[in-house]
């Protein structure tokens, strides 16, 4: 559905003359998305997600590279690309003081659909996206979640086979986000759509996507299923908390025997990564017992996508999320 090679975009920066600094927003990315996949484009703010999406949706000319989207070349067949895709931009798609139903009908009609068809399809989408009764409502009088669902309905009015969603849940409360996730998964179930979405939320990428492309500073640093990405991290994080700080050293020694990484000790807390922690923990506890080391607690954390991001880039995604 999407095949991009060396796609790059440079912006002329601010400043004058020779001081002018170029911003390499996207520094040559390769992307392959197959039919029916839900693929997440994960990266911190400013990583180049929106810029990549705008190139794939014919809104922005790449400075280098090629891309075919839905079988058409974005550079030479932009009309065909536009007909085949839906795009829900980060900033929304409706005027705050327009009426929702009229916005979606006008949008559909710009795709060449008849007014009647556009209305029928619009009302159907309103029903599917829990927007019943909001047909004449103005977007400014809608909740954030409703507005976002309206944006998605707008992007679907012409039945595209491929949908681009730019940060679909940013700024929504947890409940609205979870609700939107269901609707996005439904797109594939109900319409067989291929979905390419960007997010800087790890849980979103984890919950929603078959495959994740991790982007940082304009380059893709990893691409795999969420599970495979997490498996790259060497082991689960095991954290022991001992009652007596004097026994921390002894506990660290025992943990080191099964650990795959160095052991971190912080007064009463001792932690390390352990591959297959589930198998190793019973033995560890017996050994701690035998050495009469008193444990206050033990915690095992599966690797998260944040750990993946941290390992790949040396920075945590959470800090700027």
């Amino acid at each position: 559905m999407i095949h991009a090679r060396g796609l790059a975009r440079t912006f002329a920066g601010r400043g004058r003359g020779k001081e002018k600094e170029e911003v390499k927003a996207v520094a040559g990315v390769d992307i392959d998305v197959e039919k029916g996949e839900i693929v997440g484009f994960l990266g911190p703010n400013g990583a180049g997600k929106t810029t990549t999406l705008r190139m794939l949706t014919t809104l922005l000319k790449p400075t280098a590279g090629t891309a075919t989207v839905a079988g058409f070349d974005v550079a030479t067949q932009s009309q065909e690309v536009r007909r085949s895709i839906g795009y829900v931009s980060q900033s929304g798609s409706t005027s705050p003081e327009a009426r929702a139903g009229e916005e979606i009908m006008d949008h559909g009609m710009l795709y060449g659909i008849s007014q009647k068809q556009a209305e029928a399809r619009g009302r159907e989408l309103f029903e599917q996206l829990d927007l019943d009764g909001l047909w004449t409502r103005e977007p400014r009088a809608m909740s954030g979640g409703q507005r976002r669902r309206l944006d998605i309905a707008m992007g679907l009015v012409h039945d595209p086979t491929l949908v681009f969603l730019d940060e679909p849940t940013t700024g929504l409360d947890p409940q609205a986000r979870a609700n939107l996730w269901t609707h996005i998964s439904d797109l594939r179930v109900r319409l067989g759509s291929t979905v390419f979405l960007t997010t800087h939320y790890l849980d979103e990428a984890d919950a929603l996507c078959d495959r994740i492309l991790v982007i940082d500073h304009g380059s893709i640093v990893a691409s795999d299923t969420p599970d495979a990405l997490k498996r790259q991290i060497s082991g689960d994080l095991v954290e022991l908390v001992v009652t007596d700080a004097a026994q921390a050293g002894a506990a660290a020694e025992l943990l080191a025997r099964i650990a795959d990484t160095g052991v971190d000790t912080d007064t009463t807390s001792v932690s390390a990564r352990v591959r297959g922690a589930g198998h190793e923990i019973p033995g560890l506890i017996r050994a701690l017992d035998a050495a009469s080391i008193e444990l206050e607690s033990i915690e095992v954390r599966r690797p998260t996508l944040d750990d993946v991001f941290l390992t790949l880039t040396g920075r945590s995604l959470r800090e700027d999320a």
Binding site: L59, Q90, S91, G92, S93, S95, H107, L110, Y111
Partner: peptide, 17 residues
């Protein structure tokens, strides 16, 4: 400008119009 900020221009430009 207000329309552009609301994303309307971008939404219209992504149609084949």
């Amino acid at each position: 400008i207000a329309e552009w900020r609301a994303g309307v221009i971008e939404a219209e430009r992504v149609t084949p119009a």
